[in-house]
């Protein structure tokens, strides 16, 4: 009950964050030079068309009023027309966002599982060779940019070994399953097509691992540090001393308190991955939102740029809510102090 309250409060917070973000986006899109009405109708259109367009776009009103109109249509899903594709921006986003979301979800999964496993392994074998190998690996994972991994993977597993496909979300000879969620792996299963699922996973493997490397390494380091710290805590000594088997001490009583900082860090890494995906989307010809955003920027397509920033901001906020939720579940101290402050 109380936890629900904590969660709702957190959610309301996020709405203000998004509102702030949209103000920033709006202001930026309005202070850049150039008349949006002129851009919308094109350079050949006569002046009266532009004037009508100004009226239609509420550009003759004051900025706060304009913002209100903009927000109202944004909330109803109308983010304007893209200059580049000449389609409603929201339709473009609907098409490209799931690709990035799927990439980021798998990357997040790999980060979390890989990071926690490696970190745990490292902590259990502290200062032995396993630990040293993991630590060197983690350093490399942090200092190497994701696109380098992307290129290396493409060369090694794509061209030399020819194990994995290097382009797109699905092989060209397969037809995409009907769009339900937009996530290829989910839609293929919903459509009952396991072969497409396997194909989609193969396509996801390289870009998502490349995208996950930095977060995975960060997660491994944090998990190792927290866990070896907690290993020296009295409650672990007490649990061992009372005869609780070692496996249960390590995988239950040590793991849970040690995951809390890792989850917070991974949350940031996952949110960042959504924005950082663009170079990988270019390398792997991934039809995602980052690639769309880069093209919009090059074409000064303001509506599309605003929409991309907004959707990335939204993703960031959602990830953070999820992180708070998971941390709240893991750590009763946070949950209970949230109650007490009310």
């Amino acid at each position: 009950m109380r936890f629900l309250y904590f969660f709702v409060r957190r959610f309301l917070h996020s709405i203000f964050v998004l509102l702030g973000l949209s103000v920033v986006i709006y202001v930026i899109s309005r202070i850049v030079p150039g008349d949006p009405a002129r851009m919308a109708v094109g350079y050949q259109a006569p002046q009266w068309v532009v004037n009508n367009m100004r009226e239609y776009m509420h550009l003759n009103d004051t900025i706060p009023v304009q913002f209100f109109y903009w927000l109202r249509s944004a909330l109803s899903g109308d983010l304007g027309i893209s200059l580049l594709t000449r389609r409603p921006v929201i339709d473009d986003i609907r098409q490209v966002f799931p690709a990035t979301l799927e990439l980021a979800l798998y990357a997040g999964l790999i980060m979390a599982i890989g990071g926690i496993m490696l970190g745990t392994l490292s902590a259990h074998h502290k200062d032995k060779w396993v630990d040293n190998v993991v630590r060197v690996f983690a350093y490399m994972g942090i200092v190497t940019p994701a696109f380098v991994f992307g290129i290396v993977f493409t060369l090694v597993f794509g061209f030399w070994l020819n194990w994995l496909p290097t382009i797109g979300r699905i092989s060209p000879d397969l037809t995409s399953p009907p769009v339900v969620t937009g996530l290829m792996t989910v839609d293929s299963l919903l459509a009952g097509k396991p072969l497409i699922f396997i194909d989609a996973v193969k396509h996801l493997l390289m870009p998502s691992i490349a995208l996950a490397m930095a977060g995975l390494s960060q997660g491994a380091r944090i998990t190792r540090a927290t866990m070896s710290d907690n290993l020296g805590k009295d409650y672990i000594a007490a649990e061992r001393a009372l005869g609780i088997p070692e496996r249960q001490v390590l995988w239950k009583f040590l793991l849970k308190p040690s995951l809390i900082p890792t989850v917070s860090i991974l949350g940031l890494d996952i949110a960042a991955a959504i924005g950082n995906a663009f170079l990988l989307e270019l390398i792997f010809s991934w039809p995602g939102v980052s690639r769309y955003g880069v093209r919009a920027m090059l074409a000064k397509d303001l509506n599309a740029i605003s929409a991309v920033v907004l959707i990335l901001g939204l993703a960031f906020v959602v990830v953070n809510i999820c992180v708070d939720l998971v941390v709240g579940i893991l750590d009763p101290r946070i949950r209970l102090s949230a109650q007490r402050n009310e």
């Binding site: 007490a238 009583f253 849970k256 308190p257």
Partner: peptide
């Protein structure tokens, strides 16, 4: 206080 695990009941 240190001998009890803080995240388990």
């Amino acid at each position: 206080t240190l001998a009890l695990n803080p995240v388990f009941t």
